[in-house]
Design a protein around this nucleic acid. Structure first.
Lengths: 254, 254
DNA sequence: TCCATTTCTGTACGGTGTGCAAATAAAGTA
DNA sequence: TACTTTATTTGCACACCGTACAGAAATGGA
């Protein structure tokens, strides 16, 4: 099993591949065919090797999929968020848009990210970059960390819902996808769902870039809205999760 | 194939079950064993029938899974959001918390919701309820619709990321899950990810109820933050999705 | 050269979704 | 009642899946 990788003082038959080549083959399968096209046998065939050979490089399929998810995250453009000249809001937008675009270009990649803990180095790097931007924006570290998760959840969640509507095969343009949604929404019975039916056009645009940008903007508004200074009570959680008074912006500890 | 369901003037052998019984069997498998335990053969065995019989009720497995997702959504407590006495923020919190709790009680259900379009009647009903609350909160219909999607994305996204960390088997208490995360985060190298390492305790609490509530609060803040009145320009989308000026709260059309 | 060690392959097992033809059961008709 | 028509259910089969196991092939060290 893949215990100790290569090394000069190592004995035994040399391996013909390395982990990256296996992941690359998996990525090719992911790109055409989605996540369900990524099979151990398919990956093995893609690199001209017996199916079991894959288990020399990864202990099981789940590990291969985790590596594949990391591989996808590796391509995210952190530089977009680092351009020091831009206002911080724009830098968050750039990072979010880049992540969304990469994931939309690879339907099935989102499912990958959402089916295993995001604890790999590239996942950490993404969080670190976002944390830096939010820190420079003036958020206290604790607020920045929470805001970081809030934003990641929003991006991954919206891409996931967006991809969930896709058929197999090539991804249609956003325009067509919205149009298809609008058409499908004409079947919503107004007598049961009056508000939804009345706003069908806006509902059709849920999967649009505009809704995505609008959502991020509202989140950023919420992160910067002035609210009562945090109280200085003990740092333990109250743990109830129960809604409080209902007054807007009730602050919780930093 | 399941063309026309039962009817009084119908000829042919009577079916021994109905769709609901099939979905119930699938739900039992989902509850113990997660989404990957839901197999056509397992469902058939659960109701004492040959595997192919399932195809009399659903055209394929995907259709069965869609029905199962709907079945899960059917259990959401809309009354929690309808208690007219409470402030609207609390009603949103109640609905969000209820949805989260139901999905956490059934790990694997989120994956179900995120692997097919949410266009069933119970999905529509959920949106309609949320839309009503947001409308009563004073949001313009278009804003309310967009806010509705933003909130759904946040809830489903955060539950999805939360569930992604779970092992097979029974779900540990939140306290233990956070502790396990905290322990795992001790391995983060501070030289590469200084901010993440510094905030490890907060990062460990990403999956907590408190972070969930905090995130919803920030979103609600963002939805109610005062911002420039929408400009009256043409209703077409600009379609670029490019970030704008960076000034906070730049309003887009209602 | 022999040996220890590692990688790679052949084979096999139990599982999956589902297509197809035959069997079965009900209703309509004669 | 007997026969036809139709819908449901089943047995069988196929192709695919993840992966365990034992042996073969290749390497470096002694």
């Amino acid at each position: 099993m893949a215990e100790r990788a290569a090394g000069p003082g190592r004995v035994g038959r040399r391996r013909a591949l390395d982990e990256a080549e296996v992941v690359d083959a998996a990525l090719r399968l992911l790109d055409r065919g989605g996540v369900e096209a990524v099979s151990v046998r398919g990956v093995a065939a893609g690199i001209g090797v017996a199916p079991n050979t894959v288990y020399t490089y990864f202990p099981d399929k789940a590990a291969l999929l985790r590596a594949l998810a990391e591989r996808v995250l590796a391509e995210v453009d952190h530089a977009a968020a680092g351009s020091a000249g831009l206002p911080w809001r724009d830098r968050v937008h750039a990072l979010a848009a880049d992540l969304r675009a990469r994931l939309l270009a690879r339907p099935g990649a989102v499912g990958l990210l959402l089916s295993a803990p995001m604890d790999g180095p590239h996942a950490l790097a993404l969080g670190e970059t976002l944390l830096a931007v939010l820190g420079e924006a003036g958020l206290a570290p604790r607020e920045a960390a929470r805001a970081c998760y809030l934003l990641i959840v929003q991006v991954l969640g919206s891409v996931a819902l967006e991809v969930a509507e896709l058929e197999e095969g090539p991804v249609p343009a956003e325009r067509e996808r919205v149009a298809a949604r609008r058409e499908a929404l004409r079947a919503v019975p107004a007598e049961h769902f009056p508000r939804t039916a009345a706003m069908a056009d806006t509902v059709a645009e849920y999967i649009s870039t505009e809704q995505f940008t609008w959502s991020i903007d509202r989140v950023l508004d919420g992160l910067t809205a002035v609210r009562p200074a945090p109280t200085g009570d003990a740092p333990g959680t109250d743990g109830t999760g129960a809604p409080g008074t209902g007054t807007p912006g009730r602050g919780r500890r930093s």
